[in-house]
Nucleic acid binder design. Structure first.
Length: 377
RNA sequence: GGUGGGGUGGCCGAGUGGCUAAUGGCAGCAGACUGUAAAUCUGCCGGGCUCUGCCCUACGUAGGUUCGAAUCCUACCCCCACCA
């Protein structure tokens, strides 16, 4: 029910097949984010149409509303949101970071003051497991504590060690839940340690010491640290990560980040930038970023990206997209979100082909050069 | 015709002697966004220049008072409301 096959490798880059209860996922893969049970503004058919193989949901946000019991009563998250492919839920760990002003952390867990109604919601490793179990995600993420990018060794160590202690509790509670049905869900641990390589190694060793895992995540990156620091962490970890398990780089990223990650052995990515930037009118194209609100596109009849096969690019002009944004028609944000998601998914699909053909590095270099506008325009 | 109110930068709208090239908002222009408290946020927004400053032009029009006026006075033009 839970498996990962390495189909090909080209240097550190890998092509694999991940098997989950609701289907298989070809990697490398970008996973769109549907925090509250929907990819912002999009119909599931549009997400499927963009080629999404697996979707993210969020423990904290779905706990707030509609509540995991509601979802469970309605037959689980897949049925509730009408998405039959795999789902991975983030544990709420990211909210410990992003909602710092609204939470109080202690060794046992975290009290959040709900931004919805002000009520206090407590999340612990155990609660995070129970909620994700009730939601019925294919993959549940460990409840972690990530430190900001610029954290000192002390702060990063504190968060990393707490994450490890919490992981033990997550595992225990998840094993208990699995007694109900072992085929329902798998739990993935998260490596922390900030930009400090020894801490990252310790985190990985601690995780491996807690038993077998069907996948492993790298968290706490792209949270303000310089890119070279992220690359260093990935390169440092890569040789010691189990080869026969999928590696998931959480919260990353932009198109060039995907290539950077793939080149360093990452299999799975997720990021809100595709949809958030898309909503804000910022599109990724083969030739770099385009802000579709720009006056330069007022009379531009060309598609956002002539090389893209998404619903937006095959049908609409930049001039029309600009008009939709200027007129504040919801179709604008929706179309650019679809485009950006498709863009990342297609990038991962092509990377997979190149890895299988063992031409990844060369292709990625060419691709990056054109995207970053060096040597072309 | 009478009485009252009003005419401010692309638009709306503050300001009622110097701190005003003139608060705000809109429109316009540019930018940010990385496990989503974001359909959000930030910057620019009269013109010119030898651009941490300087010079023009500007608050209906024309005069005037004053060291100094969008702000006070006079005349005129226009708009609105009510009355006839």
């Amino acid at each position: 029910m839970f498996g990962f096959t390495l189909d090909a490798a080209d240097g550190a880059a890998r092509a694999g097949t991940l098997t989950l209860p609701h289907g298989t996922v070809r990697t490398p893969c970008f996973m769109p984010v549907g925090t509250r049970g929907a990819v912002r503004g999009l119909h599931p058919a549009e997400v499927e149409g963009a080629g999404a193989q697996i979707l993210l949901g969020n423990t904290y946000h779905l706990h707030l509303r509609p509540g995991e019991h509601t979802v469970e009563t309605l037959g689980g998250l897949h049925r509730f949101i009408s998405w039959q492919r795999p789902i991975l839920t983030d544990s709420g760990g990211f909210q410990v970071f992003s909602l710092t002003a609204l939470r109080k952390l202690d060794e046992d867990g975290v009290d959040f003051v709900s931004h919805v109604d002000g009520s206090v919601r407590r999340l612990t490793p155990e609660r995070a497991m129970e909620i994700q179990w009730a939601l019925g995600a294919d993959v549940a993420m460990a409840f972690d504590h990530l430190a900001p990018g610029a954290s000192s060794v002390e702060a990063a160590r504190d968060a990393m060690e707490r994450t490890l202690r919490w992981l033990g509790r997550c595992r225990t509670r998840h094993d208990e839940l699995m007694a109900e049905s072992a085929d329902r869900q798998t739990l993935w641990p998260i490596i922390q340690g900030g930009t400090h390589l020894p801490l990252r190694r310790e985190s990985l060793e601690g995780i491996m010491g807690l038993g077998e895992w069907t996948g492993i995540a790298i968290g706490g990156l792209s949270v303000g640290e310089p890119k070279p620091a992220m690359h260093a962490v990935l390169e440092h970890l890569e040789p010691d990560l189990p080869r026969d398990r999928p590696r998931y780089l959480m919260g990353v990223g932009f198109p060039d980040d995907l290539l950077d990650g793939i080149a360093r052995g990452v299999d799975l990515f997720d990021c809100v930038a595709a949809t958030r930037n898309g909503r804000h009118g910022s599109a990724w194209t083969t030739d770099g970023r385009v802000n579709v609100r720009g006056a330069a596109y007022r009379l531009d009849e060309s598609p956002l990206d002539p090389e893209c096969d998404c619903e937006c690019c095959v049908r609409f002009s930049r001039a029309y997209l600009r008009h939709l944004f200027v007129a504040e028609e919801h179709l604008g944000p929706r179309l650019v979100s679809i485009h950006n998601i498709r863009f990342l998914i297609r990038l991962a699909e092509r990377a997979r082909e190149q890895i299988i053909d063992r031409t990844f590095d060369r292709w990625a270099a060419d691709w990056r050069r054109r995207y970053l506008g060096k040597g072309s325009a």
